[in-house]
Design a protein around this nucleic acid. Structure first.
Length: 843
RNA sequence: GCGGACGUGGCGAAAUCGGUAGACGCAACGGACUUAAAAUCCGUUUCCCGAACGGGAGUGCGGGUUCAAGUCCCGCCGUCCGCACCA
């Protein structure tokens, strides 16, 4: 009789079998159709968290399902292993970043295996393996040769205490996040990749990504930020020139000033001889960059005393300002101000009492005087604009660009918001940039036969700064060109470079080169990529760029790396806290509190705590749940099942004790069915057509749902089937349904499925079994319930054979008691019959 | 400010093409089994009136299109996300 399903035993046993038989190793030379399922690889921070579990469960279900459908599936795993946390750990705990990282990898690998993910571990690598980053260095040199890399002075956030460069996110209120020191802006010579060369392609390519969420495509589109307009020159009163960019050349006769950024060459030149200008420029640069600060920041300008001559009227002189709202790194760092039709220009003009001239009319008003404090930026007709009068905005833009080009003082231009990708990081734990700096020869690539340029092991983190820089010997090398003493580049590559091509290396990893073109192309593009939406812009854009760069260099004939993208929601949990006054708040973990209904008490002192919002699991709010003990308690299948249940995968999933228990109960319910298989049939070999239908509808429905990644719907369908089987009387159909159920749940709950498969005498592993075939005759009902409405309100239902003629359905509907009563002897005015669905009687 | 998504029971959610709103799960309640509990099983569960048969209302709010609207259109309100002085 039914025993309990021993998850711990079954999990371990089947995981061992999969590993031993290399069940999930993908074969490059397989004749089966290929499918590449990939989840974003993790950063080895220590332990896996629930977010990983959810992400990898989704991918695993799809990968296992596709295998059962007869595909050769590549489902690999590796480690995004370079990055700052390892250096922080080195500083705090005195361990080597490599030792720390590899130890974390060992822990996390065994945790992933413990959940039974069907991964091809034979292709595993970490980006900090010299074998990996050596090939990455080679690709970097390829890009250098292809002219896609250059060196430029660029400003960075410099922490003077930690002697390190900070990312923008590490600067909080102008101070370093670790040291608290006021951050300085320093100019350093840094390496850049020419992603802007591909801006047009990256934008256009989005259109072909049919299986990407619109949201992500839109975010990338905005990030790339294509603007078309006119770049043109003003002659200055000192005999010089200033160039500006505008997307609104149509409003050229509404100009009332010219403004340049504080870092603009013109401003820098003026600052040299004038301390007042220099002071003003400094003030502009000091301004904060946070959202709130920009919102409230006053428009400030410094009148240079220079004037600019209007290109269409040399006698019309416009004042030239240095202004804090003009950005040096967008366009050309200078604008002409049209206050009536641009809000910033209007704010500025009102403050400095400049002319505000209407040149676009919305049809209501045409007078040159523009009143009010809200600029008009909508469409309309040009007014007060000489030869442009009467044109609409679009025509006027074209007209002005044409005249500027004819007159030789301007050109129609496209400007991008996207900047080139600065890849230099002044850190140890990253891929060394394979360049040697020679006083005579300049930057020289490291000869290929000397790759990889390995990180030195003997480094210390007890003093601030980059250990590569102060290493006694590492950076001192001879110039490969002239042989004189030279210096290695001590910067390392941005870790986003590591993740820009790892999916190619998974597909093909020869020893002698980054990848084999033909082998990689067999697998690529990734069919389904799954990860967090936080990577919607940077990682996904960089990987798209890298792939296009490889194509450009003829190394890989793939335009887009990820054909399908899915961004899953986060795993969340309630928060518990106490306000300690002065805005301070202490947070408590789920294990520290006792919850009853909407109130909670702290176990430690029995006093109440506030039950806060449901938020993303995070260490800072202490609302994390460690998957490790949960898997030990409930088994891998219950955890997987819960990850797939209830919430649509793109939405957040709230972790709850009740939820995981529900999943566990379902696993046990499955086991009672599987284990009672012998008795299911009983003595009765009769068929149960209704159950047969339900089974085949479920096989088809679950398959569709898994392909659509709608796991919550697949779960619901499985509950329905299990309910139906449990209610059904013993029959051959019932026994068959239970036997088939083993395969339907296999992608989601693989351990119990293997156990049941073996017990039921299945051939080989259920992981290698075929997805059950659907009998098309059984997925359609032979009877349908037809709704009967009177004036659109449901009044009754009738059951009819499927496909019954309209006339029969109408007659049957009108004959029911309830409808007869509703009509009260009157003839209906109209009857609408939707076959197999409903009848609407219009009375 | 700009761009986008979303809003359905106590909760997570279904409703695939405009056609029976609330499938499925959680929680709750009632019952069976048990010395008792757990587990399991049976039932109820959108709201209001009603013992019941039944009736009315109902998918953020206000309008509209339609025989028929959660779904389409217009206008609000709210929540969340992304970008942010981008000329």
């Amino acid at each position: 009789m039914a025993s309990r399903f021993n998850a711990l035993k079954a999990d371990a046993a089947w995981q061992a079998v999969w590993e031993e038989r290399r069940t999930f190793a993908a074969k490059d030379d397989s004749p089966r159709p290929k499918s590449y399922v990939l989840e974003m690889f993790p950063y080895p921070s220590g332990k896996i968290h629930m977010g990983h579990v959810r992400n990898y469960t989704m991918g695993d279900v799809l990968a296992r399902f596709r295998r059962m459908k007869g595909m050769e599936v590549l489902h690999p795993m590796g480690w995004d292993a370079f990055g700052m946390p390892a250096e922080n750990a080195a500083m705090e705990k005195g361990v080597h970043p490599g030792a720390w990282t590899y130890q974390n990898i060992d822990t996390m690998r065994s945790q992933l295996k413990r959940i039974g993910f069907g991964l091809d571990w034979s292709r595993e690598f970490a980006t900090c393996d010299p074998e990996y980053y050596g090939h990455q260095q080679a690709l970097f040199l390829d890009m250098v040769e292809a002219g896609l890399v250059y060196r430029k002075e660029s400003a960075v956030n410099w922490d003077p205490v930690d002697m390190t460069v900070l990312a923008n996110e590490q600067v909080i209120d102008g101070k370093g996040w670790r040291s608290g020191a006021v951050v300085e802006r320093r100019k350093l010579s840094q390496w850049f990749l020419k992603i802007t060369d591909f801006a047009d392609e990256l934008l256009d390519g989005l259109k072909e990504l049919e299986h990407w969420p619109d949201k992500v495509k839109l975010m990338q589109e905005n990030w790339i930020g294509k603007s078309q307009g006119l770049q043109f020159r003003f002659a200055l009163s000192d005999g010089g020139e200033v160039e500006v960019f505008t997307t609104r050349p149509d409003t050229i006769f509404g100009a009332s000033f010219v403004a340049v950024a504080a870092d603009h060459p013109l401003a820098l030149k003026l600052a040299e001889g004038n301390p007042e200008v220099a002071a003003f420029a400094d003030k502009c640069r000091a301004g904060g960059t946070s959202a709130a600060e920009i919102e409230t920041q006053e428009k400030l300008g410094y009148d240079t005393g220079l004037t600019a001559a209007h290109p269409f009227d040399p006698d019309w002189k416009l004042p030239v300002y240095i202004a804090n709202f003009v950005l040096m790194d967008y366009g050309v760092g200078a604008v002409f101000g049209v206050p009536a039709h641009d809000q910033r220009d209007l704010d500025f003009a009102r403050k400095y009492d400049l002319q505000v001239r209407r040149v676009v009319s919305d049809g209501a008003e045409e007078a040159p005087e523009f009143h009010g404090d809200e600029a008009y930026t909508g469409p309309g007709t040009l007014v007060n604009s000489h030869f442009l009068n009467g044109m609409d905005v679009v025509d006027a833009k074209r007209e002005v660009i044409e005249r500027a080009e004819e007159g030789g003082w301007g050109t129609g231009t496209t400007v991008w918001r996207l900047r080139d990708w600065g890849v230099s990081r002044q850190r140890y734990w990253g891929t060394p940039i394979p360049i040697i700096h020679c006083e005579t020869c300049g930057p020289v690539p490291v000869p290929r036969d000397q790759l990889p340029v390995k990180l030195p092991e003997d480094v210390s983190f007890d003093i601030p700064g980059n250990p590569l820089d102060r290493h006694a010997t590492w950076k001192h090398v001879d110039c490969p060109k002239c042989g004189k003493a030279a210096r290695r580049e001590t910067d390392t590559l941005d870790t986003f470079v590591d993740s820009s091509w790892y999916f190619i290396r998974f597909a093909s990893q020869p020893d002698d080169k980054p990848f084999d073109k033909a082998v990689a192309e067999q697998w690529l593009p990734v069919g389904q990529y799954i990860g967090g939406v936080e990577h919607a812009i940077l990682h996904l854009l960089y990987a798209r760029f890298w792939t296009r760069a490889l194509k450009h260099m003829g190394k890989l004939d793939i335009a887009e790396p990820f054909a399908g993208l899915f961004t899953q929601g986060m795993v969340t949990h309630e928060t518990y806290f106490r306000d300690e006054g002065e805005g301070r708040r202490s947070w408590f973990g789920p294990d520290d509190v006792e919850i009853s209904g909407k109130t909670g008490t702290l176990k430690a002192d029995g006093q109440p705590v506030t039950v806060g919002r449901v938020e993303k699991m995070s260490k800072s709010k202490k609302n994390t749940v460690d998957p490790g003990p949960i898997v030990e308690q409930y088994g891998a299948d219950a955890v997987r099942w819960f990850m797939l249940s209830d919430s649509p995968p793109e939405r957040d999933l709230e972790w709850s004790e009740a939820g995981i228990e529900g999943a566990w109960r379902f696993v046990q319910r499955l086991w009672r069915l599987f284990d009672g298989l012998d008795e299911a049939q009983g003595d009765d070999a009769a068929e149960d057509r209704a159950l047969d239908r339900k089974l085949h509808q479920t096989i088809a429905g679950v398959a569709d749902d898994i392909e659509a990644l709608s796991f919550n719907k697949a779960v619901a369908k499985l509950y329905e089937l299990v309910n139906a089987i449990e209610k059904a009387k013993p029959s051959a159909s019932r026994a068959n349904a239970v036997r088939t159920l083993i395969r339907i749940v296999a992608p989601m709950a693989p351990h119990i499925a293997e156990e049941a498969w073996a017990e039921a005498g299945g051939d080989g592993l259920v992981a290698d079994a075929e997805w059950p075939e659907v009998d098309p005759a059984l997925i359609v009902e032979d009877e349908v319930t037809i709704a009967i409405q009177v004036n659109g309100k449901l009044r009754d239902t009738i059951t009819m054979p499927k496909g019954a003629p309209k006339a029969d359905v109408e007659a049957a509907a009108l004959a029911t008691d309830k409808i007869v009563r509703q009509l009260d002897g009157k003839a209906p005015r109209k009857v609408i019959v939707v076959p197999d669905r409903l009848v609407n009687v219009v009375a």
